[in-house]
Amino acid sequence: DDMEDIVQVGTIGLIKAIDRFDLTREVEFSTFAIPYILGEMKRFFRDTGWAVHVPRRLQELRSDLAKAKELLHNKLDRDPTVRELSDHLNLSEDEVIEGIVAANGYTAGSLDTPADSAPAEQSRTVADLIGEEDPAMEKVENLQTLAPLMEKLNAREHRLIELRFGQELTQAEIGAELGVSQMHVSRLLSRTLSKLRAGMLTER
């Protein structure tokens, strides 16, 4: 962090110490002031050091977990389990798991980070290597384009589309519903779908 910000934060702690210092206690001013200065600095790092904002309770739990992990690792000569961490910290296993998950928000990597050591113009980023094309995205785009075209249909065409694709009726069932032949339903559907298809091609 910028040193100027840290000095300013420390100065706030110093001012608080000056305001609260009591000469009658016969304590060195430096001894009294240091906890105030350090407290402000720790609060600053706690509030600004996280890549993702998490509640202060979880920020403090991350620190407790880190200390507990180190202590238990030295004692057990292996990484401690969630149960061992919860017993050591007098917390439930759910709370420990919540703290571990929250700790992942302390740092964040950029999707633009190079994923290999190739020259810059040939290098791929992390974003190039993760995720995959979502086939549902094309459906969403089609629906967005289709919605205003549907509004332009007349009542009969709209009813026809609703029966065929909304209620999933067969052409014979639609004919019975509308009082026309299956052949006529087929022609109406073909004409209506051609109108919608042409509209979508024009919109794109």
Rank of each mutant, 00 (worst) to 15 (best):
R57S: 11
A17G: 08
I34Q: 06
T107E: 13
D134H: 02
E168F: 09
L23W: 14
K42S: 15
D77G: 13
L143I: 14
Q122E: 14
P148Q: 02
E203T: 03
E168L: 13
G131N: 06
E95F: 07
R124N: 04
G99H: 01
H53T: 14
S181Q: 01
L196R: 01
S181K: 01
I12Y: 05
R56S: 14
E4G: 10
L76V: 03
L14D: 06
S190Q: 11
P119A: 04
F45Q: 02
L196E: 00
P114E: 15
I161V: 11
S110W: 03
A103S: 13
G10S: 07
I174A: 00
Q122K: 06
M183G: 14
R197Y: 14
I100G: 02
A103I: 06
I97T: 15
E168Y: 04
T145G: 12
N154I: 10
A102M: 05
A115N: 10
R197A: 15
D94P: 07
R124Q: 04
K139F: 10
T113A: 11
V54I: 09
K139R: 12
T202F: 12
G199C: 01
K42I: 05
T48I: 07
A198I: 14
A155I: 09
D87C: 09
K195R: 09
Q167P: 02
F44L: 10
A66H: 05
D64M: 06
E177L: 08
P55I: 13
L129H: 03
H184A: 00
P135C: 09
R124G: 05
E133V: 10
R204N: 15
F165P: 00
M183K: 15
I18S: 12
S63E: 13
D77Y: 10
L65D: 00
E70H: 12
F29D: 03
K75N: 01
K139I: 15
L129R: 04
V180R: 00
G10Q: 04
F32P: 01
L153T: 02
A102E: 10
A172Q: 02
A68P: 02
I34K: 07
G109N: 15
A118H: 11
F44M: 07
L163V: 01
G105W: 05
E141A: 15
L38K: 15
Y36W: 04
L14M: 07
G199D: 00
R78W: 03
A66Q: 11
V54T: 09
G109Y: 13
S110G: 08
N74A: 09
R187W: 08
Q144M: 14
A103W: 05
R43G: 07
A136G: 10
E26S: 10
L193T: 02
G199I: 01
V96N: 03
L149C: 05
D22F: 05
